[in-house]
Design a protein around this nucleic acid. Structure first.
Length: 100
DNA sequence: GTCGTGACTAGCC
DNA sequence: CGGCTAGCCACGA
C-alpha cells in the first residue's frame, strides 16, 4: 500500500487497450468511491506519463476532460485503439467501458 | 495546521 | 435539455 496517487496509477495501468474507464470507476477500484476528484488530481501529476495510459480515463459522462498532453492527442490515441470519439466525447461509453 | 486548487459527480432549477 | 451549485478527496504552499 503506497500513496493514493500510486494506487490510482496502478489501477489505470491495468486498463486493457481498446477500453476506457471513468474517474469514479478508478476511485472505486482503489476503495475510495468519493475520491474521483483526487483521482483526476493524481493522474494530472502522474510521473508515469508513458507508462500509465491516462488517456483511457474519461469522465463519467464520457466527456474527455482536459489532459496534460492535450485532449486532442488523447482522443486520437483512443480512436486508434478502437474507441469511438465524438465531439470530444466517448460514443457508447458503456460499450468501451472497462468493467472489472 | 489551515487554505486553495483541480484531469470529478450528482443534484437542482 | 442546459447551466449552476454544493459536496468530495488528496496534495502542495
Amino acid at each position: 500500500m503506497k500513496t493514493f496517487s500510486e494506487q490510482v496509477w496502478q489501477a489505470t495501468k491495468r486498463i486493457p487497450k481498446g477500453r476506457v474507464a471513468t474517474y469514479a470507476l478508478i476511485a472505486k477500484a482503489i476503495k475510495r468511491p468519493k475520491s474521483a476528484r483526487a483521482v483526476g488530481n493524481a493522474l494530472n501529476k502522474n510521473p508515469y506519463a508513458p507508462i500509465v495510459p491516462c488517456h483511457r480515463v474519461v469522465r463519467s459522462d464520457g466527456f474527455v476532460g482536459g489532459f496534460a498532453s492535450g485532449s486532442e492527442m488523447k482522443i486520437k490515441l483512443l480512436m486508434r485503439e478502437g474507441v469511438t470519439i465524438k465531439n470530444k466525447r466517448v460514443a457508447s461509453l458503456e460499450k468501451f467501458l472497462y468493467r472489472k
